[in-house]
Design a protein around this nucleic acid. Structure first.
Lengths: 223, 223
DNA sequence: GTGTGCTTTCACAATGTTATCATAATGAGC
DNA sequence: GCTCATTATGATAACATTGTGAAAGCACAC
């Protein structure tokens, strides 16, 4: 059960999302504009705030900025605009996700769940580096550290690990892995993957535990 | 390209939506009332059904309820009055989204796309999880938790459970299960299913209750 | 061309999964 | 309550998948 704040000046939208969210067992609070949203966020701890961009008194972006001054509550933006700069601008403000109108209430709720789970996932991300316990991965520098020691992975091992990590907690079939890591034009053996998984595991030391085998399916990076 | 069924007694509305949908490259079928919509939904697999609430012979809600007995096809409701909201969000109906008249065809199509994308995504980050009491199923991670404990299912058990859950509350014959879970090219014994149901039940602990036997027919995941 | 890693393939062992069958239990109809 | 049809269950043999080590194949630098 999450505590959700929905801020939108359109009553219809508030109601629809509220109905769906309450059906999912969440507790929903409403705000009719940005100012009220900021005030409520100051007083109470929400698990997530769903906010329209266009609101009277204080728009969504400004409200987001305000809230970020005192809290890190995840914020999901509802926007009528699709322009990319809008999104970028939003992410700079600390927006966690975006849904463009018109949206289906189901989609909004799905994203709410995704954001909240993501925020309680169990890995810290700083810049382009992710860390899972003593396993540190830097995507841009193409570095992997195991308990502070730099691991020496081959290119394919990097690629495989990066793809697994970027899709952590998602079950990946051998086909999917071949397609995404090796390329759609690779017509090799399925078992090639197994061998690379083997080597990757051997190189990850104690953190080989993150790579789990999904029998009859493929592999998954599980945190 | 989606296969769309539009059910409305007003020819004008059907035509407008059809025109837009076909322009988008979709295949559109028409039904003039609820009864016909139900019959067509039984025979064919649509990606989405767009349905008016007010229709002769069988209204949209009843049609939706009927269809849900045998299929989980996403349904988008068109309603004339805003007062119908309350009814719409009687979720037993299983409506996925709604649009209030007068609507722009563009909006309808936008929602159609949103709904279908959600339903066929499978690549949704983390929020792809359903929970029935203490039974938690995550399709993307291929995880099943029983009262918080991870269940260790075999591939076939996963596949079977996933199929049952994706068709929850729908009666499934052994033939249907064999075809969908085992594949059309499997020519094994019917009793094979019983054995897998047995093992699945054993693995679900207290939640074996969700799998009900339909004597002389097959099985059903009932919540 | 040679050497050096890296990648792929392969074979075999280890392990896990599935289908089938026999038998027991259950339910429906009379 | 009896009979017949259907489903539940346990055992087991057949089967499939994965882990692993070794070796062949490749690519690239020198």
């Amino acid at each position: 059960m999450y505590k959700i704040l929905i801020a939108d000046d359109e009553q219809k939208i508030r109601e629809v999302i509220k109905e769906y969210a309450e059906y999912d067992g969440h507790e929903v609070y409403e705000a009719v504009d940005g100012r009220q949203a900021v005030d409520m966020a100051k007083e109470q701890d929400f698990d997530i705030i769903i906010m329209d961009v266009m609101m009277p008194r204080l728009d969504g972006f400004s409200a987001c900025k305000e809230i970020r001054k005192f809290k890190n509550t995840p914020i999901l933006m509802l926007s009528a605009r699709t322009e990319e700069y809008d999104k970028l601008f939003g992410f700079e403000m600390g927006v966690d996700d975006y849904v463009v109108k018109p949206f289906s209430p189901k989609e909004v709720l799905a994203r709410v769940n995704a954001i909240i789970k993501r925020n309680t996932a169990g890995n810290e991300q700083v810049g382009d580096t992710v860390k899972f316990e003593g396993l540190e991965i830097n995507f841009t520098a193409r570095d992997v550290f195991i308990d502070g020691e730099k691991a020496n992975l081959t290119p394919k091992e990097y690629d495989l690990l990066f793809y697994l990590v970027k899709n952590k907690n998602i079950a990946l079939t051998r086909n999917k892995l071949l397609e995404e890591v090796w390329g759609y034009d690779f017509f090799g053996d399925d078992r090639t993957i197994d061998t690379h998984i083997k080597m990757l595991r051997n190189n990850l030391g104690p953190y080989r535990k993150f790579i789990v085998t999904l029998r009859g399916m493929g592999y998954k990076f599980q945190v």
